[in-house]
Design a protein around this nucleic acid. Structure first.
Length: 239
DNA sequence: ACATTAATTATGT
DNA sequence: ACATAATTAATGT
């Protein structure tokens, strides 16, 4: 398999790449330079596990390109996709939760490029760089909030509403506009959707087929386009 | 209202 | 040609 083509290339990363993303946006060019000096850049193939749940959290990451999934394994051994993370966000930040192990696995949904730092630098970053802490905890807050509402959905709503909600979130967070509608930016299978919503791929398949006939979505293999987002939002609240 | 099973077909390398 | 993804129907809880 494709093994460690790890590169150290702090010098090759353009500081302006980080300058506009929230945790670093308030920092000077020199400060960003310092940060990059300690960073390791790495490219990942799609479907690769960056770190496992429960693993000792020796590094934290900033996703520069691509998408990653945050995946947990239930006690029954079932995969649950908790979250999708787009580029420009930190992940694997166990330190922010006061943990020393990762609470979930990170798997690439696409090809991806990420910077990473040894966790020793976390506390240093927090005290040394103004705005780093506040901005990252803002992101952490949003994620916790989202996972909270998802847990609520799982408990209360029916399957159709859950996959409709999941689709809505996906096109909002990781969707991109095309001529016919909005499509999800990375390959996604019915199996993936079922792991987001806690169903089976068959049930998802039947629903997507039905929605496709109604003209709400269009789909190919590993690819979904939402044509009528208004109708989709209606499905989220259907009784 | 949904999962499970199984059989069948479609699609990408 | 092969593996993986998607569909569909039938049956079960």
């Amino acid at each position: 398999m494709n093994t460690n083509r790890r590169k150290r290339l702090s010098a090759r990363i353009d500081p302006s790449l980080l300058a506009h993303i929230p945790p670093f946006s308030k920092l000077s060019t020199e400060q960003i330079g310092e940060i990059l000096d300690h960073a390791v850049s790495r490219r990942y193939e799609p479907g690769v596990t960056i770190f496992e749940e429960g693993e000792y959290a020796d590094r934290f990451y900033m996703l520069l390109d691509g998408y990653i999934r945050v995946v947990r394994i239930s006690p029954q051994g079932e995969r649950v996709i908790a979250l999708h993370i787009p580029s420009g966000q930190l992940f694997g930040i166990a330190e922010a939760f006061g943990r020393d192990t990762y609470p979930a696995a990170a798997v690439t949904a696409t090809e991806a490029v990420a910077l990473s730092w040894a966790t020793e630098f976390w506390s240093e970053f927090v005290v040394k760089y103004d705005g780093f802490a506040t901005e990252t905890y803002k992101v952490v807050g949003h994620r916790l909030e989202e996972m909270g509402t998802r847990v609520l959905e799982l408990a209360t709503q029916q399957v159709e509403q859950r996959v409709a909600s999941a689709l809505s979130r996906l096109i909002n967070q990781v969707g991109h506009k095309v001529d016919r509608g909005i499509e999800i930016n990375f390959p996604i299978t019915r199996q993936d959707l079922s792991e987001i919503t806690g169903t089976t791929s068959h049930t998802v398949s039947r629903m997507l087929s039905a929605w496709e006939k109604q003209g709400i979505i269009a789909s190919k293999r590993k690819q979904i386009t939402v044509l009528d987002s208004a109708q989709l939002t209606l499905l989220c609240e259907a009784n």
